[in-house]
């Protein structure tokens, strides 16, 4: 099967800044693919390269097996939901949604019918005559989605589409987007800096750091089996043990990841000093120092919280200590 989007050694350099540096990606058709990383890590530039707003300075991008080299955005079977939605302020909702059809020269009646159908799909029936400025943030987001879907793209690109929404709406939209992707079967490429969002929605996640992809995999793999310290730290806020400490514990010299919720304060174990504690609702976050390495443990509700400055013993199950032997 051909890939929906394939990057082969793609780079995008701005002067001396390597926004995207020799990236390889293979996104399968019908996949919900997330690009995750901190701001400035190159994930948005990758999205813009697929859309055609940027052109690579090296390597090649293929969309459904065809090279995208020299193909302008308006000739790609790809549509985008923008971070700021980019709704046309001079057009009403219906004309915004039907914009692609208007450009394609479809007759008015057909445009209006298709726009209404698209608005129903995103649960905004009857909003066609309103102006974008009269809509709430969540409604604008849906209009942007309907506008991008009306052209029946083969790949839908979403650039932090939920970033501007409040928490509750964001969780609701996450579910709706996932359901919509299943229903339409379109390839979704989703850019986010929120690991929770990426892990809960995507079939596969690519983690970006400094212009490169550091790990690609299923959400469980990314979360439980990070291959490099950056992924362990960024995706799950894991404790990263330096090679010296790991060597003392296991005899193997490599980085290791230890999830905060896997740590227990018990009668025996490794000695650590409590530096600070903070209550975070479902649990208490305890910052400690073990072998000169800062650590964080999550203590569930109901258990005793140690005092700041106290010496405690830390323990964990052996299988929770994840060794990053491959690439560290």
């Amino acid at each position: 099967m051909t890939s929906a989007v394939q990057f082969t050694g793609v780079s995008r350099h701005f002067g001396s800044v390597r926004a995207v540096d020799a990236v390889d990606i293979d996104i399968a058709e019908g996949e919900f693919f997330a690009m995750l990383g901190p701001s400035g890590s190159g994930k948005t530039t990758c999205l813009r390269l697929i859309a055609g707003f940027e052109q690579p300075t090296g390597g090649d991008i293929a969309i459904f097996g065809q090279s995208a080299k020299g193909v302008p955005p308006y000739k790609r079977h790809v549509n985008t939901v923008f971070q700021d939605y980019a709704l046309f302020p001079h057009l009403n909702v219906r004309d915004n949604v039907a914009y692609g059809l208007m450009i394609a020269g479809r007759p008015k009646a057909e445009r209006h019918r298709a726009a209404e159908e698209a608005l129903e799909l995103v649960a905004l029936p009857g909003y066609g005559t309103r102006k974008p400025s009269e809509l709430s943030g969540g409604q604008r987001q849906r209009v942007a989605l309907a506008r991008a879907l009306i052209n029946q793209p083969k790949v839908l690109l979403l650039d932090e589409p939920l970033g501007a929404l409040d928490l509750k709406l964001r969780e609701q939209m996450q579910e709706e987007l996932k359901a919509l992707q299943r229903k339409l079967g379109i390839t979704f490429v989703f850019v986010t800096h929120d690991q929770g969002e990426a892990l809960s929605m995507a079939d596969r996640v690519a983690v970006f750091n400094e212009g490169k992809i550091v790990q690609v995999g299923r959400p469980e793999d990314i979360y439980y089996r990070p291959e490099v310290p950056f992924v362990a730290d960024f995706v799950g806020s894991s404790n990263v043990l330096p090679p010296e400490v790991t060597e003392k514990l296991t005899g193997k010299r490599c980085h290791a990841a230890l999830r905060p919720e896997a740590l227990r304060i018990s009668e025996s174990g490794h000695v650590a000093t409590v530096r600070a504690t903070s209550f975070i609702g479902t649990a208490t976050r305890v910052s400690l120092v073990m072998d000169d390495t800062p650590m964080v443990a999550l203590i569930p509700k109901g258990q005793e919280i140690p005092a700041v400055g106290a010496q405690v013993n830390l323990s964990w199950q052996d299988e929770d200590l994840h060794l990053m032997e491959a690439r560290s």
Binding site: H77, R106, E110
Partner: peptide, 19 residues
């Protein structure tokens, strides 16, 4: 939604200039 196939390699002189 109606079945549409967009982006059918348009190639008027203006489009070519735009490309």
């Amino acid at each position: 939604m109606s079945d549409l196939s967009l982006h059918t390699g348009r190639s008027g002189p203006l489009t070519r200039l735009s490309d």
